[in-house]
Design a binder for these strands. Structure first.
Lengths: 219, 219
DNA sequence: AGCTTTTGCTACTGTCGCGTAGTAATCGCG
DNA sequence: CGCGATTACTACGCGACAGTAGCAAAAGCT
């Protein structure tokens, strides 16, 4: 039974070329970058430890030097991307003061939407892994996404509440529904911009919003 | 190490109780039902061949009698659910004639949305597996979902085109964006109704739509 | 140069889930 | 009541992938 022979550690066998040695912190981001790349190009399912390692030109145990498990790797990736995404969002959303309300809530919406979509366009991979439904989404991604959505939703609700209040609170238009609608709208627009940036540019959405505003009677 | 013993084909070992024998067609639907149940209760990832078999009280090879592979099982499930879902949709959406336009497009939208949401509420599992983003979505689900979405989108675009035309085509409001928005809106509403039927009942959305319509100046 | 530490590599083990070959029970029919 | 056909079951093989133990090279220190 030749197959039974223990694969002798044949010394002539060529060891793989050593990857450049890199300090821990840098490896970490390198690995996360590779993972992100895999997520957007080949789907979440392709993010195996071996695949990530190969992307970086390294072997599996190196990853385990940085992340205790695949779960932690994915969680770390999501944390990183979401943190950045929320920063981008905060920069765009109307803040507490809400001084931009001058030209009316519709115009505000149009502007915020356009700015948001430009942010999305500037970091497509980041947003792709947050906003695009993908096959084989791992639990970590799902959980993180839901959590972020909840935060954003709460914020949207606050804003909706304030704006609707300013409008004299139209009967039956509750802030909760409006908030959900706004978030859904933003997500949809982001998806379109990501899948077909040529066809759907940020301004197109702003124009559409303004057109709808044009239909409303002045308050 | 008792665990190391080869599980000898001990003849005294009790064979499992034979599952009731069932004709092919019936087994098929039985298996699909079990798969659907697993999808909505434990996520797509839990739909393993063994798990489905266990739900039905049967063993794996029985499944392979009906479906050539896991992929085919999932595909069949999706086909079945989507077919029904599209039937429900068609029953609700305005048809070619569009005779319901009488009370204005806003009222039409409110009615269609409410009816759609009631349909969703009537078959929650079906819609859950179509409309809810779930962790570990298998490729089959994703593909099928996208395909159905495309169909619905085309339909929505046609409708939007017709309705906007009827309104005298407000400048800048292109049907494509409107269609995407409508679909996103419906999906969002469906998700809310599915996750929290107590809190979000179909009428609430209809009311909200009417409230928005109330803001527009009469055409 | 020698020694230590840090980083990376090889070569596994274990588990899980798909898919299959061969066998056993059940059912209908003569 | 026995016999073929149908349906189900047992028991694996196999591949993919997470995770690990122990060795080898590189870089820094003296």
């Amino acid at each position: 039974m030749t197959g039974d022979m223990i694969t002798a550690p044949d010394p002539r066998r060529q060891r793989r070329t050593y990857a450049p040695r890199v300090p821990a912190a840098q490896r970490r981001t390198q690995l996360l970058d590779a993972a992100l790349r895999l997520v957007v190009t080949r789907g979440h399912n392709a993010v195996t430890m071996d695949a990530v390692a190969e992307q970086v030109g390294v072997t599996k145990p190196v990853i385990y030097g940085q992340f205790a498990s695949r779960g932690e790797l994915l969680a770390a990736l999501l944390r990183r991307e979401q943190e950045q995404a929320l920063l981008q969002l905060r920069a765009v959303l109307p803040d507490g003061a809400g001084q931009r309300l001058a030209e009316g809530p519709g115009e505000l919406l149009a502007q915020v939407l356009a700015e948001f979509l430009e942010a999305v366009r500037d970091a497509p991979d980041r947003w792709r892994c947050i906003v695009m439904p993908m096959p084989d989404m791992p639990v970590q991604f799902h959980a993180a996404r839901e959590q972020a959505r909840t935060m954003v939703l709460a914020r949207a609700e606050t804003i909706a509440h304030r704006v609707l209040g300013g409008l004299g609170g139209p009967a039956g238009l509750d802030p909760e529904i409006v908030a959900h609608t706004l978030v859904a709208l933003f997500e949809m627009a982001a998806r379109l911009v990501l899948t077909d940036p040529e066809h759907f540019d940020p301004d197109r959405f702003a124009t559409a919003v303004r057109a709808v505003i044009g239909l409303t009677r002045p308050v």
